[in-house]
Every structure is written in structure tokens, then in C-alpha cells.
């Protein structure tokens, strides 16, 4: 979790340089970072994953990492 946070903040710090170099399309790079975090979120927390077979039972609360 802390890793995701630090990655987000560091990219935010670096962003102005990117914009100076590649202009408007730097937004796409910036958009990719939260998207990756979103995917990471879905992967690591089964509770929110789209259930397949065993969804009728109440799902266990995920252990605290």
C-alpha cells in the first residue's frame, strides 16, 4: 500500500518535467499510474473481485496485510 502511495507521489513530483518535454500527452502517462493502481487494487483484494463460482457464500473479510 505504501509502495502505491510513494509511486503516485513521486510521479506527481516528476510530472512538470514530463509536461515540459512531451506536452499535453503527458496526461496519458499520468492517467496510466492510477489505472495501474486500480488494477493492483482489484488483483490484491479478492473481496472486490468479480466472483465466479462460490459467490453465494458470504465472502471472508480480507486479512489485514
Amino acid at each position: 500500500m505504501l509502495v502505491v502511495l510513494t509511486v503516485l507521489f513521486t510521479v506527481a513530483l516528476v510530472a512538470p518535467l514530463m509536461f515540459r518535454r512531451i506536452g499535453r500527452s503527458a496526461f496519458y502517462v499520468l492517467a496510466a499510474v492510477p489505472a495501474a493502481a486500480f488494477v493492483w487494487l482489484l488483483v490484491t483484494f479478492p473481496g472486490t473481485q468479480v466472483p465466479t463460482r462460490r459467490w453465494p457464500r458470504a465472502l471472508p473479510t480480507p486479512r489485514r496485510p
Binding site: L8, A12, L13, P16, P34
Partner: peptide
């Protein structure tokens, strides 16, 4: 100002 704006928005998400 786009550079500052982009970094502020991403920092906001973080």
C-alpha cells in the same frame, strides 16, 4: 500551467 496542474491532480489522487 499544465505541468503544475497535472502534478497537482495526480498528487490529489495519491
Amino acid at each position: 500551467q499544465m505541468g503544475a496542474f497535472g502534478s497537482q491532480l495526480l498528487a490529489f489522487a495519491a
